[in-house]
Amino acid sequence: MSISRNRLYLIIFIACMAGYVWLIMNWLFPPVHHSKETSICLLKHFTNIPCPSCGSTRSLLSILNGNFLQGFYLNPLGYVLLMIMIAAPIWIVYDWIKKSQSLLIFYKKTEVFLSKKTVAIPAIFLILINWAWNIYKGI
């Protein structure tokens, strides 16, 4: 039960494409200044506090420009996003051609894996550390 294959693939595919469009837009028309006032992030917009993933656009752009360390410094989650954005569309096309559902199975396994207490608590802790670091950096 739960989410169907086509629905999940469509959501992931649209999300990845939106991510690419967003990246290209930021690459072609870099914002003049990354001040706290100009942001698409709702949390930062309303409270001026950056969220755990604020700065990942800049991080991804730095990684794509070859500044791997700066990318890590801006937001380590950029690397996670990079992996997802590269892997997911290829995997979807592969499943689509093969008519299999290996990504759906992987997605469900990951959900179960992330819901385990031994995984979830360290993961939440890491995100919180990243968040604190983001606030400290004033991303």
Binding site: G19, I40, C41, L42, S56
Partner: peptide
């Protein structure tokens, strides 16, 4: 979480 709420 990873995308600031899907870019808001």
């Amino acid at each position: 979480l990873l995308t600031c709420g899907g870019l808001g």
